[in-house]
């Protein structure tokens, strides 16, 4: 099952390597990992999308929590949250196909970032399913290059009310397993 882990870490040298290294060293497979500063420049948020059964996810969360620089881990899989991924897509667009491609882009709400006689670069931000559907629609036209940011996500509501929308991966010391 797909889980979106939202992790707050100290914004320090080497944290990304530590998280990525841990995940590979323990043999976990991840779909995507994104990282960036939060509203507090001392803290970064990482979003990790990972597939796994409950025991795998439990181990990943526990191992990540062991890292000294980890502040908080939320497993957003079962809660209400907003997720987005940004994609840049370069497709073959000979003049005869151009209009058709623009129509599809319009349906998905993709923006045109660049256009040449042969190619179009489009940008789309959306949740994973929408991004995947867009890619599927564009494939027949010939995708020349593609760049994806990976998922970023935030829980809905204020932090205080997140108890209802987020399964806070049990903090260290709480024996809810």
């Amino acid at each position: 099952m797909r889980h979106v882990l939202s992790i707050l870490v100290q914004n320090k040298f080497g944290v990304l390597a530590r998280v990525a290294g841990l995940i590979s060293a323990r043999g976990f497979n991840i779909d995507s990992l994104s990282v960036g500063e939060t509203e507090d420049p001392r803290i970064s948020r990482m979003c990790i999308v990972v597939q796994g059964d409950d025991s795998t996810i439990e181990q990943i969360i526990k191992q990540l929590r062991r890292l000294v620089e980890t502040l908080k881990i939320m497993d957003l899989a079962e809660g209400r949250y907003v997720e987005r991924e940004l994609i840049l897509l370069k497709v073959d667009a000979i003049p005869a196909r151009r209009l058709e491609i623009l129509q599809v882009a319009n349906v998905f709400g993709a923006k045109i970032m660049d256009m040449t006689a042969k190619e179009i670069i489009m940008e789309l931000a959306g949740e994973c399913g929408k991004v995947e559907a867009f890619i599927a629609m564009m494939k027949p036209y010939g995708i020349k290059e593609m760049a994806r940011t990976g998922t970023v996500a935030l829980a809905r509501g204020s932090p205080a009310s997140q108890g209802a929308s987020v399964r806070d991966a049990a903090p260290a010391g709480v024996n809810t397993l």
Binding site: S55, E58, Q59, K62, Q63, R65, R66, A172, G173, V174, N175, L177
Partner: peptide, 18 residues
């Protein structure tokens, strides 16, 4: 004392992290 040891190798019925 290490929560990650619980259920790592062997599922258990009564875990105590302490």
């Amino acid at each position: 004392v290490d929560a990650s040891e619980i259920n790592k190798n062997k599922p258990v019925q009564i875990p105590i992290v302490a």
